[in-house]
Simulated scan of single mutants.
Amino acid sequence: MDGFQRRREQKKRNILEAALTLFMEYGISKVSISEIAEEANVSQVTIYNYFESKHRLIHDTFIYYVDKASSDFEKIVYSDIPFPEKIKEIIFNKKEVARQINDEFYQYLMKEYSTEGNYIEKIYVQKAVPYFTFLFKEGKEQGYIDSSLSDEAILFYVQMLKDFIQREDVYQKILPLTEDITNIFFYGIMGKQNN
């Protein structure tokens, strides 16, 4: 990648990061292209050159957010920190996102998530399943997860949760429960460890 292409990609990333920051705080409808341009330190024309429309920018920001969340999860799963700390960090991250995300933006993400063949589903199959498989294997090897539980059963349970959360009547009210649900999931298969 030459210098021009690198600068172009960095500018695009800056726009996506600015849009994500503003959407997380204020939602989608209250944020204008001019506010995103100001946050990203670019002109509105530059945003339209990269994304063509606000709708396209919203869609690309959604993909950027999902990729970023997947990358953050991967870093925790494959890190050298002890298994119980990984679980605490995953729970903390979920709690922080639930606390910080604007409800309108969250509803948009979940509506996208519930459509057939959506991007989150692809990431789930390609990345999340292998991450979970690695995490469960490590937890079993270290004695934190009941080794008599099959990986298939645990992944089936994860799939059930994922499928249930995709229902509109569920995702509309789940955000305040994110930390509790994550705690129940992890400590339900591990047994809460004494600190």
Rank of each mutant, 00 (worst) to 15 (best):
I87F: 00
F73D: 11
Q159H: 11
Y124Q: 08
R13A: 12
K86E: 03
Q107S: 09
T115Q: 10
S32R: 05
I15L: 10
F136A: 10
V170N: 07
Y157G: 13
G188T: 02
Q142W: 01
Y64N: 10
E152P: 01
N41D: 12
M1T: 14
I154M: 05
K95H: 09
K54H: 09
T178V: 04
L20E: 08
F83L: 14
G139W: 00
E89S: 14
E85V: 08
Y64A: 12
F164Y: 15
A98L: 01
V66N: 06
Q107A: 10
S53L: 02
S43P: 05
N183R: 13
F132D: 11
F136L: 13
A153H: 08
F51Q: 14
E96T: 14
A128D: 14
L20R: 11
A19D: 09
M190G: 14
Y50A: 11
A40F: 02
K68E: 10
S70W: 00
Y157I: 04
M24T: 13
K30D: 12
T115N: 08
Y106L: 02
L177F: 07
I87N: 06
D180C: 08
L177V: 03
S43N: 10
G139S: 08
E138S: 13
P84H: 04
I154Y: 01
L149P: 04
E89W: 00
R13C: 07
I81P: 13
V129L: 11
K94C: 11
L177D: 09
K86T: 03
P130T: 09
A153K: 12
E38F: 10
K11D: 05
A69I: 02
D169A: 12
E179H: 07
E38W: 05
R99E: 08
F132Y: 15
Q44T: 15
F132L: 15
K140N: 05
Y171C: 06
S71F: 01
D60W: 02
N118D: 10
I33A: 13
A153R: 09
Q44Y: 01
I181N: 09
A98T: 00
K192Q: 07
N93T: 06
D72S: 14
K173C: 09
F73A: 15
P176V: 01
Q44M: 11
D72P: 06
Q10K: 14
Q159P: 03
G117C: 02
Y64S: 13
L57A: 09
F23S: 11
Y113P: 03
Q172N: 09
Y124M: 12
F62D: 12
E25L: 08
R8T: 12
M110Q: 09
F186V: 06
K75M: 04
E112T: 06
V42I: 04
S114H: 04
I184D: 13
N194L: 06
D103Y: 10
E39Y: 07
K88M: 04
I47S: 13
T21N: 13
G188S: 07
F185C: 11
